[in-house]
Every structure is written in structure tokens, then in C-alpha cells.
Design a protein around this nucleic acid. Structure first.
Lengths: 143, 143
DNA sequence: CTACGGGTTCGAGCGCGCTCTAAGTCAAGC
DNA sequence: GCTTGACTTAGAGCGCGCTCGAACCCGTAG
């Protein structure tokens, strides 16, 4: 598989793939007679995994740490697990935070849609009234 | 309230608060006799709301759009609602994606922890053996 | 033979969201 | 009066993760 094919199959650009190789996220691909990279299908799973790490907000420097541990072989399993566990904790925390923000957003949007409107400056996150609204103690306001 | 107090109370730096004012996310604060900004407690709720938008990944340019609509008054309520609804949809999608990634991460960590550590195919430059393992032709190795 | 659509390298540039520097003003405390 | 420290401005700089440009090399189709 050439770099263009890989790009199409991963959604990364060829530029990005070369960049990942340059910084060490991807192993140096073997070149053919005209110095072009040739990829094995196995790279797809690794790229997909990197994608998960990226999606969950892992900085490249941490992906590199993981990658380098992996290259050092089975002696680094514990370290890798620890690294992933730490990352998982961050992802969970972020998830919780997002869910919280989403609840606020829901409340606010519900306020906009409310049948009765009092024009007030209430662009708050969780002020008294918003909390009351969420608990069904008051009707939403628009702002 | 002066900018330093506001910084302490919001977790933003004074630099960032000035920056937000400069770009229009925060209204121009009234200055005192020595040109220093004086804040009213009401700014806290607005900053908290901006924080929610930021946490949920809204780019500054969209926060600006919202801010400007808000400044134009009640005639923009519909537009604001639409903007927030669109944002909410993105947040929900992102949340789902994160949950999916988290599940993968859980599986992978479980793989590392097991007494028989199974070679997971998302952590591999999938070599011959790994492919064989996947097809049940060989026993798993640690990598 | 030539044009074209890939690929290669190296290094510069970009968009984002801050973050900091420099040079100055001001008010309070010793 | 002097020091300290928080504030002011305009504007430069930074870290991240790409993204692109320039100049060149190949192999194949017309």
C-alpha cells in the first residue's frame, strides 16, 4: 500500500502520515526501488489506535512515550498499562465535565424555548434560578 | 472588583481577561480614576458560561457570534437558541465518540491486566503472528 | 516525447488560544 | 520620599498539531 492509499483509508493526509513518521509515531516505512513508502495492512490498526488516543485528547508527546515503550518490547507492559490507566482517568474526568456542561446547555436551551418569557440578564451557568429550574422549582427564563 | 480579584475568582489569568475584553468576549469594563477595570459580580456568571462553552470545545469565533447576538438584545433570541442547539449536537456527538474510545481503552487495559495477556489488535504493528492469532491459528504472545 | 499524477525531502507557515514582555502609571505602607 | 506591587497599553512570542510550498523524482498513458 502506498501513502496515498493509506491516507484514503485512514482519513489522515499523506502530509500527516509523513509527519507522524518523522516524529516517531509511525515506524519508518520500508521504501521501494523508487524510495516510495510501502505499507502493510497492519499499520491500519496502529493508526486507528493512535486515532483513539488523539480523539481522547492525549498529547502527541504522550503518544510518543507509549510508542517508544511499545518499541522496547514486552518488558514495558506495566509502564504501558500505567500510562493508559492514567489517560483513562483523564478521559473519564473530561467526560464527566462534558456531561455537566451538556446539562447546563440543555437547561439554557429549555429556557430559550419556554412559553413564558421574562427578559432578564441571566446568562448564568448555575445560578440560583437555574438550579431551581433544573429541580423543577421554578420556570425557566429567557435572557 | 479589580482584575486580579476577578482572575482569582474565575481561574483565568488577568492577561486572559484583558485578552477576552480585547477580542470582545467580555464587555469593556468601566475604568476608575486611574484607568483600572472595575468589575461587577454579574460578570462572574457570564465568564462561567463562557467557560462551559470553552470546555465543550466551542471555538472563540462562535463564542463571539453568541456574544454579539446577545449584545444586540432580545431580537436575537432565536438565533442564539439555534446556535446553542447546534453546539449541543456537536457536544453530544463528541461525547458519544469519547465514550466509544473509553470502551476501547477499557478493553485494552483489561488485556494488559489479564493473567493471559491477549494480543489486542489495536496495539500492533500487526505482524504475521498477530494475524495468525486473530484467526485462531496460533497462541497469543505479549508484545 | 511529453504530460500527468503520483511520490520524495526539507523546512517554512498557519490557526488557535492564550501568554508574556516592555515601559509606564498609580496608591498604599514604611 | 521610596519601595512594593497591582494595574495599564500595544504588541510580540509560544506550544500544539498539523499543513503546505518548493524543487525534484518516477512510472505510465496518449
Amino acid at each position: 500500500m502506498k501513502i496515498g492509499d493509506l491516507a484514503r483509508r485512514t482519513g489522515l493526509s499523506a502530509h500527516t502520515i509523513r509527519y507522524y513518521e518523522r516524529i516517531g509515531l509511525l515506524p519508518r516505512a520500508p521504501r521501494d526501488a523508487s524510495r516510495q513508502r510501502g505499507y502493510d495492512a497492519s499499520i491500519l490498526t496502529w493508526i486507528a489506535f493512535l486515532g483513539r488516543l488523539r480523539t481522547t485528547g492525549m498529547p502527541i508527546r504522550d503518544m510518543l512515550r507509549y510508542t517508544h515503550l511499545r518499541e522496547r518490547g514486552p518488558g514495558t507492559l506495566d509502564e504501558r498499562r500505567i500510562l493508559l490507566e492514567a489517560h483513562r482517568a483523564k478521559v473519564r474526568a473530561h467526560l464527566a465535565e462534558l456531561q455537566d456542561c451538556l446539562a447546563v446547555l440543555d437547561t439554557k436551551i429549555a429556557g430559550y424555548a419556554g412559553p413564558d418569557t421574562v427578559e432578564m440578564d441571566n446568562d448564568a451557568t448555575t445560578d440560583q434560578r437555574t438550579r431551581a429550574v433544573r429541580e423543577g422549582l421554578a420556570r425557566p427564563l429567557r435572557d
